[in-house]
Nucleic acid binder design. Structure first.
Lengths: 163, 163
DNA sequence: ACATGTTATATAACTTGTTATGTTATCGGA
DNA sequence: TCCGATAACATAACAAGTTATATAACATGT
């Protein structure tokens, strides 16, 4: 039952961060499914970027999110399919594609900002509170906390004001 | 030039951990390419698990690594293709597939354990030393440190004994 | 003005993770 | 003994990341 990534320490930190990130995304998804339409958790940063920064080119989105340009192109296509974003050619430079939220996209973001996003933020913040020791030990603590009480239960507990 | 994942704080922690993990894996890859044959950084935990725990079934590997069974099945197939691992049916239970290192695989692991893995471990440990403040700030520090000096240069600096 | 180089995005191919489901082997009870 | 349930692994389909390359628009120097 020993976890090799833990045992490998700093050597496997990359794999371990990726695994924990994916688990966190997956746990978060259970909460995000409450939205209509449901948006995969990895796409929420796209919505947040467009909400915070306004219409952006594909290249600007890639830089703001720290992912590659083809990654942005594909995810934007998904958001357009779902009717949450729209794209038009740049007025000055016709090579550019300027991505913005649709009315539905803005509404989804407003809904999320009002309730769901803050609740998730609070639950994850609680998850990360008072972590002990150096980074590897902190990661272990997060993994253990998630195993002992899943994120959606932490969020529910907080919403209901239960301590 | 602002980073949305940083700005989103705990809300996007999953995406941020995944992104940082992928970057770390990618940076590590530059060092791991020195091995012959080169093995993708995400497969090294498989090799380490087989080295530390001996022959394992697919299911045991999945548990030791914390990934899904189909993920293990596929990666094991890759290792077998490269001649680093081999699989035979379980002697008791013919449904099982028992995976072990080949001679080439053992040799690769021995080489890596002697030099490369410790150097990577040390470079990542240095990267994670004296991180300030709460988790989000620590992640920011790691990102900034990696941006200011890539991992392969940190490893080279350490090997050469330069301070 | 036009040839050439550069830039923005799209597309293709690949990797690695997932879930859902198919196959085959094992186990247990009638 | 054999039938049904369970368990281990394989396979298929999808998601999201990557790199390499194609396409089209822009910019520039002569």
């Amino acid at each position: 039952m020993d976890d090799i990534l833990r045992a490998l320490g700093h050597l496997a930190l990359g794999s371990r961060l990726k695994r924990l990130g994916e688990q966190l995304q997956s746990d978060t998804q259970a909460l995000l499914d409450a939205l209509d339409p449901a948006v995969p958790s990895g796409q929420h940063p796209f919505l947040a970027a467009l909400d915070r920064l306004g219409p952006l080119t594909v290249g600007d989105l890639a830089q703001a999110l720290g992912v590659s340009q083809p990654g942005v192109t594909r995810t934007v296509a998904r958001l357009v399919e779902r009717g949450l974003a729209e794209a038009k050619p740049g007025p000055e430079d016709q090579r550019q594609k300027i991505v913005s939220l649709t009315a539905a996209g803005r509404q989804l973001v407003e809904t999320a900002k009002g309730d769901l996003w803050p609740r998730i933020d609070a639950a994850v913040a609680e998850l990360c509170r008072d972590l002990p020791g150096p980074l590897l030990a902190q990661l272990t603590a997060i993994e253990d906390r998630l195993a002992s009480e899943p994120l959606h239960r932490r969020a529910a507990r907080q919403r209901d004001g239960i301590q």
